[in-house]
């Protein structure tokens, strides 16, 4: 039996922070600001449940807004890779 979990359940789960795909310009701006190439960013697989829901393709950069116990909110980026 294949169980399909609804999108909302995954996206609203306490452990799952907010994920957004950055646009082309935003990505360029970010890389320039940090002075790095895409390769140096942390990765997320295209097959990751959340990346799948967002429809992210390899090469996209995902902006993750985490709730942090120390900083209130912290922003993290991951680049989508094949797999």
């Amino acid at each position: 039996m294949v169980v399909d979990i609804k999108k909302e359940i995954i996206l609203n789960h306490e452990l799952v922070p907010k994920h957004e795909i950055l646009s082309e310009e935003e990505t360029q701006e970010l890389l320039e600001k940090l002075g790095i190439s895409k390769k140096q960013l942390p990765r997320i697989y295209a097959s990751d449940p959340v990346a799948k829901i967002l429809g992210a393709k390899p090469g996209d950069v995902i902006k993750i807004t985490r709730k942090s116990p120390t900083a209130g909110e912290s922003i993290y980026y991951r680049v989508v890779v094949k797999g």
């Binding site: 452990l15 799952v16 697989y45 449940p49």
Partner: peptide, 17 residues
């Protein structure tokens, strides 16, 4: 299991927790 079902960010939060 959490990584498979809810993704790598959830797994990261679970490790911390």
């Amino acid at each position: 299991e959490v990584m498979k079902v809810l993704g790598v960010e959830a797994a990261r939060n679970l490790i911390v927790e």
